[in-house]
Design a protein around this nucleic acid. Structure first.
Lengths: 133, 133
DNA sequence: GTTTCAGTATACAAAATTGGTGCACAAATG
DNA sequence: CATTTGTGCACCAATTTTGTATACTGAAAC
């Protein structure tokens, strides 16, 4: 159980923009982070859609960090790329294992929910102002 | 970022053996948990190798829970099936991203390590004596 | 106002991981 | 020694993840 490589890339990209504090085009970001240009573009679009990053078209266009660093957490980046964190798919909307416990409610749901919430709380506490020295 | 379906199955299987507190053969376990027989056998072998479950060959053979329920945690099951929990592959033995930070040590390693440790601590606290009512 | 730069959108392809099978073997019981 | 029940390894299929191609949109510069 890891965050995906895509999420890891997204963290690098946000870190890059957070550190530089200036507008950079996708090509530069790709080079600095070691992510392929195409894949960077794809990830950047997700980050823009969730307003972690701002984008500008045309000549002199590019990307900038979208908010004060204090207001961007590791959880924001993870959630943007792979959706809300759930430790087990048992918590996915609409998923019904129907097995852990024959009679509802499934005992594991509560346990998994508590653990997931605790992890999210922790991830929310790590903000990019702390990461960028 | 979820635990895999295999891990989820393993949790069901341990729960089943923990609850029944008696020797059961793979076929029965498979039926009770809704996991295919073949896949159950595969998972059971991992659980046996890690001594969470005891196995017995021959007629009247089968599987029994391997330890007092208090000494089996959710972390034990997860670790048995998918190895130690790491939130990012940056923490994998021998993995070198070489990107998050050009100069060693990578800033994210420490952060990821702390989060991973916190999650593991929490998973260790959930033991099967609590789960089986 | 059209050319060029830079991001957007969607769909597709390759690679890796996960989930699941097949088959021959090993040990215990009666 | 035959039947029962688990073991070990290799393999295949499905799904997910990672990466790419193509066509399009909007802004700035000349």
């Amino acid at each position: 159980m890891h965050i995906t490589l895509e999420t890891d890339y997204a963290v690098r990209i946000v870190y890059c923009l957070a550190k530089e504090q200036k507008r950079m085009d996708a090509k530069t970001i790709a080079e600095k982070t070691g992510v392929t240009l195409r894949f960077s573009l794809k990830i950047l679009r997700k980050l823009v859609a969730n307003e972690l990053v701002k984008s500008y078209k045309g000549t002199q266009g590019g990307y900038e960090i979208g908010r004060p660093l204090k207001e961007i957490s590791l959880n924001d980046v993870i959630e943007t790329v792979e959706g809300p964190f759930y430790i087990s798919r048992c918590l996915d909307e609409g998923y019904e294992c129907g097995q852990h416990e024959v009679k509802t409610p499934c005992k594991f749901k509560k346990i998994y929910q508590e653990i997931s919430d605790a992890v999210v709380e922790r991830l929310k506490k790590v903000t990019f102002d702390q990461i960028v020295e």
